[in-house]
Design a protein around this nucleic acid. Sequence first.
DNA 1: ATACTCATGTAAGCTGTTACATGATTCT
DNA 2: AGAATCATGTAACAGCTTACATGAGTAT
Lengths: 191, 191
Amino acid sequence: MSDLSGTARLLLGMIHVKGRRTGYDIKRLVEVSTRFFWAASPGQIYPELKRLESEGLLTRSEEPHGGRARNVYTATDEGEQELHGWLTESADPVFEMRNEGLLKLFFADSLNTEEQIEVVRAMRAQQEAILDGIRKATPPYRPDRKFGYIAWLYGLGIHGWTIEWCKQLEADLAEGRVPQGLQESDASQTR
Amino acid sequence: MSDLSGTARLLLGMIHVKGRRTGYDIKRLVEVSTRFFWAASPGQIYPELKRLESEGLLTRSEEPHGGRARNVYTATDEGEQELHGWLTESADPVFEMRNEGLLKLFFADSLNTEEQIEVVRAMRAQQEAILDGIRKATPPYRPDRKFGYIAWLYGLGIHGWTIEWCKQLEADLAEGRVPQGLQESDASQTR
DNA sequence: ATACTCATGTAAGCTGTTACATGATTCT
DNA sequence: AGAATCATGTAACAGCTTACATGAGTAT
């Protein structure tokens, strides 16, 4: 047991937290909540739900709405245990980041100042778009979903921090100033 | 042109910045620099270098060291143009994050307080390990690699911020305090 | 002698996305 | 009537990791 994919855990968690859900429900939930730290596409959600059903972690009930098919999933006891086991296990969690803006910045030495500033601005614009998406998805405050709120606050904080960092860097570059933090290393290098 | 993968861009950039390089060189460079915002494994690097060669963006020269094979790659003019085109293009850059610690936190409502704190602590421990890795990889200060340094500073900042955020949350949870930012929403909810 | 680093690669497999296909219901 | 949303799914493909395989040179 417990060789579930991260996405399987996400589905289990969503169903636990929100109760009985369809694949479509989960897809929308992900879009307004975990999207920025754990994405999942429909091409992944539907097959994975089936797999979890076949493994006995979810049960499916067909509840068509008029002539429209609808599969509502519920967690089994085993599913709940699996979720709890994952939440309390002590394996180091996955952390992966792909930040193309930062990668460009890393290689920006050969550009002229305007181009460099443009790279930072593009990186900031993207972070602003993400922050906007998070802001718009304000979770309603519910005492039983404190941690949904906390994760949301983290999103605001981390992307807000990055935006401020970018602004500072843009200003430094525009004014030909040495970016913060380089002074000390300037001082420590002798030749 | 310009349908290169992100990893191809990484290789092009590394070769531009560092000059003639072997796949092994790049592998090690990635491990101490871009790893935390753009990873690349050897199973990807070697085939991609070949592909870039066959597309005329890199040239390969066989320079065995004793009986040990060695392929040294250099960027062609086309490769340099490709790199510059990417750095200055205005397409919104890739940003992806998979943060399992945060995902656990998102689902932590059903845990007891000790377990909740443990989730945060695990998330922090991981960020501390990453910060440590970044710190150890201090890039030597070189005026022509200012942006390598800037990206490094960003790494220190962003992971440092997250660590402080986790500490604050741990303290709040331990003392049964309502986490920062929840007060306002507490006030706004009437019942 | 032995272990470590240099050096290159391949194969299997997993994860995930994109794009497409289908069709019903509800809103305007 | 037409558009948007609800709802489910598949197929093709891209990207990446892990593990393995191989072997030479270098440092202890």
